[in-house]
Design a protein around this nucleic acid. Structure first.
Lengths: 339, 339
DNA sequence: GCCATATTTTACAACGTTGAAGCAGGTGCC
DNA sequence: GGCACCTGCTTCAACGTTGTAAAATATGGC
């Protein structure tokens, strides 16, 4: 068995509490004693038992990250960012996949194993605004995404409307007039799809361009295949357009593939912009213009808020923070400017 | 504060140990007592404190998965598979990113927080065969990948040589004669790159085709940009070939992009196969033929072995298991058969 | 050299749980 | 009717740690 404080104490010839004091850098430990204890720690290869420490102290040094699925690139990159941000503060990350199932999302908040961590960073995909009152758990929560706002928890979100508007304006600035959209969600107002579509409409409106539902393709999920299907749909119904706004990168990639198969050149015939700045958009053919929603900032802000909340669970009212975004122009919108 | 066994016991009018017995489905609890206790549990919203349970029982119900980085699609999909496999057994997964740094990889095994879990599934990328004796920790380890074998830990690996041979044979079966390779590692014998190159050579040899180092491109990392650079390199030195084996999908994707830019048609001019069966290879243009290395099986086998080892840490000698693979033909090698 | 005070170390009690062991009371067997 | 044995519950100790408070030792002033 692994060595305990008692074992170290016996070897060092002191009480086990003194060993504890050495480990926790208490003042009032004589140098000679400290040396003796450290020697014994070395000798036995002592490592503190974090479970016992957790039980005693009431916190674990871990946080839970709940997201739909790691094989979706957006969430993989989000998880990467969260783990890195957490590591900077000495926290480990425990991952729960919800598969975007409502049941699993509720279960994550209710599960006793959530208490194996000190807090939850939660990116729901099935729960919506109507579930706002169900967002609660035994630990502090920081909510990510746009599906639910005004909950009792802190919330980090991207500037969907403004960023989508900027993406659309980027296409307009390139001289494009008929901008198709893939990825809208039927009737949605408050989720990412609804908000990004709103940004799109605002951009059009500001330039005096009429919104045309005929070049907006609706989907259910935001996977590549949905982007491809939506583009098929647009082409099948004879839609004409000179630009495309994919409401996320994955949709845009699926749509680009179909465009190219159908003989359209990107960006010459159709300029395309996505949303998310996935790593892979840097390597596709053509490279995909996109919007960097500030993923690192999202992760770091979420960790910071969660830590503050863990330290002082009831101190402040719920906060809502929006991160900075950047339009990232690449080949898929290149050289198509009016000048 | 959250309710404890004692609180429930007080409400139910029994001893706290009886509550514990109810929760753990001990026999010898009268139905009426059980009902009373369950009522009290409901009433108080009692949830067991897993930290205390862990301390007492000596196991946590979590496992650690250590991998280079989640933003690399291969590892994201691996993590997805491991989390799903773990969930089937009621285990949570705690993720450590090593960034493929030797120091971090060693640190993961030495860190006291590894003991917040019952075992480690470890996919090293910096440590190599020379470090075989450093593979040890306070918990059982299951090693993934090809970099280290013959350690004291259980090991799950894919059939790199045989699978790479099958991939190469697939290209040969399509009538291709000059098969370029991107992704070789200088001087490597035992890692994924070395093994897959060996499979490639075996396939050539079996058909009496001379190995030509002039159409093998060496790289340092296995990212898309390396695949692109390697293909640039091949083209620059005037290499001629009618097929390409990317030692993983990401490399193949980077190379395909460069090929297409250079005016080559895939698969007409160059047939391409990758390795890994990443989800996204289903959606690229053209869709990428590849080798499915049995990711789900890897994850499930790793979890199973780890659980066996947790239950009986010293029972059996280290085991080494190879998973089944499948060649997945898609558009990038389509219609190029001899018939 | 002694008291007051500051420093260093110790003993004890938690944290919430489970396993071991024990104690009533009832049942079955001869 | 007495003994063994179940059933149903309880008490106690332990898992390895940290906080509190008290005890032991050292330091300083006179």
């Amino acid at each position: 068995m692994a060595a305990t404080l008692h074992d170290v104490a016996r070897v060092a010839g002191v009480s086990f509490k003194t060993v504890s004091n050495v480990i926790n850098n208490h003042p009032h430990v004589r140098d000679t004693t400290r040396a003796k204890v450290e020697q014994a720690i070395q000798e036995l290869g002592y490592r503190p038992n974090l479970t016992a420490r957790s039980l005693r102290s009431g916190h674990t040094g871990a946080i839970t990250l709940a997201l739909p699925q790691l094989s979706l690139p957006y969430f993989a990159e989000l998880a990467d960012a969260v783990i890195e941000a957490a590591a900077k503060h000495g926290l480990v990350v425990l991952i729960e996949q919800t598969g975007a199932s409502r049941e699993r999302e509720l279960e994550v908040m209710a599960s006793p194993r959530l208490k194996m961590s000190d807090g939850l960073i939660f990116s729901p995909l099935a729960l919506g605004q109507e579930d706002v009152d169900l967002i609660k758990a035994d630990v502090p929560i920081v909510l990510l995404g746009e599906r639910i706002s005004g909950s009792a928890s802190d919330h980090v979100t991207m500037q969907n409307v403004t960023a989508a508007r900027a993406a659309t304006e980027h296409l307009l600035d390139m001289g494009r007039k008929r901008i198709a959209v893939v990825g809208a969600h039927e009737g949605e107002v408050i989720g990412s799809a609804g908000l990004r579509l709103r940004g799109y409409r605002e951009a059009l409106e500001a330039r005096g361009i009429q919104y045309d539902d005929g070049i907006v393709a609706y989907v259910v999920d935001w996977h590549r295949s949905n982007g491809a299907a939506a583009m098929h749909d647009l082409l099948d119904r004879g839609a004409t357009f000179d630009a495309l706004f994919g409401l996320n990168d994955t949709l845009a990639q699926g749509a680009v593939r179909v465009l190219q198969e159908a003989g359209f050149r990107v960006p010459e015939d159709v300029a395309v912009i996505g949303f998310d700045d996935l790593d892979e958009t840097r390597y596709s053919l053509p490279t995909l213009s996109t919007v960097d929603p500030g993923r690192t900032e999202i992760a770091e802000t979420a960790i910071r808020m969660l830590m503050e909340r863990i330290k002082d669970p009831t101190g402040m009212p719920p906060r809502e923070i929006e991160t900075e975004f950047h339009v990232v122009p690449r080949e898929s919108t290149a050289g198509t400017g009016p000048a």
